[in-house]
């Protein structure tokens, strides 16, 4: 049975699309057929992050409206076997995503894929609610920063009250915390909330910590999910997170500053 995973956050710009691309790619790399759906109607960007922006012909809303078949709209990823992308529409019509329409498309995707990753738009409006409504699991992407943490708590409230699972009284949506843009040096300087601080406040299980890294911008510049860069710390951190998502035990890495030499420390140098 296919699992539907929503990648959500409330706040914008925290790394939802970057994380959706990385985690979707990671699942497919491990042999699970996966589709990543862009729910951000009007502000399509998953295609750019995945490097397939020039191959978009039909989109999610076309499929809902019966203007294209799912096969016509799905874009096969050229790098990773078993990975597909369903792009968002650029329409300005806010009501383009209907509950029945989304349900119909998801039901069809469930027949073909092991994992359906829903890349949510920012905010708590219709698009964000549609992205999380059918979810079995939720990855809440959070930056160690006050507004992001508060908004994450808000989105957790919505998951617990307005998702299909909540409405129908089924088992709750399984929640995961993904802390991104983590800077261990600033944490030890007391300038940034620590992993433990954020876990304390949100009180949901930790899926992974992605260190702040220049490789993430490089990856999006090139349209290649950062998880494909196995030398990047952020890529390795996403790989660990995918393994944990699949139930494997992986120790958390990159939580501390890189070790510095004795002389560098003596002179007060910071990496």
């Amino acid at each position: 049975m296919a699992r539907i995973i929503v990648v959500t956050s409330g706040k914008g710009g925290v790394g939802k699309t970057t994380s959706s691309a990385a985690i979707g790619t990671g699942l497919a790399q491990r042999g699970h057929s996966t589709v990543i759906i862009d729910f951000d109607v009007g502000l399509r960007n998953l295609d750019l992050i995945m490097g397939c922006e020039r191959r978009v012909v039909y989109d999610f809303v076309n499929v809902i409206n019966g203007e294209a078949t799912l096969n016509q709209a799905l874009i096969k990823d050229k790098r990773t076997e078993g990975l597909y992308i369903l792009p968002a529409s650029q329409t300005r019509d806010k009501d383009a995503l209907t509950e029945e329409g989304v349900a119909k498309v998801l039901a069809e995707l469930k027949q073909r894929f092991d994992y359906i990753v829903c890349d949510s738009p920012a905010g708590i409006e219709k698009g964000a609610q549609m992205a999380l409504y059918f979810a079995d699991e939720a990855i809440v992407v959070t930056n160690p920063e006050v507004s992001s943490v508060r908004d994450s708590d808000r989105i957790l409230g919505i998951l617990q009250s307005k998702s299909l699972r909540a409405r129908e009284g089924q088992d709750a949506v399984k929640e995961h915390l993904l802390l991104t843009r983590y800077n261990p040096a600033r944490v030890s300087a007391g300038e940034m909330l620590s992993v433990a601080d954020v876990e304390d406040i949100l009180a949901i299980p930790l899926l992974g910590v992605i260190p702040e890294s220049q490789d993430v911008l490089k990856a999006s510049n090139q349209g290649e999910p950062v998880i494909l860069n196995s030398e990047a710390l952020a890529g390795q951190a996403y790989s660990d997170a995918v393994d944990r998502l699949l139930g494997e035990d992986r120790a958390h890495r990159f939580l501390d500053e890189e070790k510095q030499g004795f002389f560098k420390r003596l002179l007060g140098g910071r990496g």
């Binding site: 508060r150 909330l193 601080d197 003596l266 007060g268």
Partner: peptide, 26 residues
């Protein structure tokens, strides 16, 4: 660093303030 030991004590960290404020509002 070694030199920091000679500087005056730093004030309460801003991360601690952030955590306190978040706990109250959340």
């Amino acid at each position: 660093s070694f030199l920091d030991y000679f500087r005056s004590k730093r004030p309460a960290s801003s991360a601690a303030t952030a955590k306190e404020r978040l706990q109250v509002i959340v």
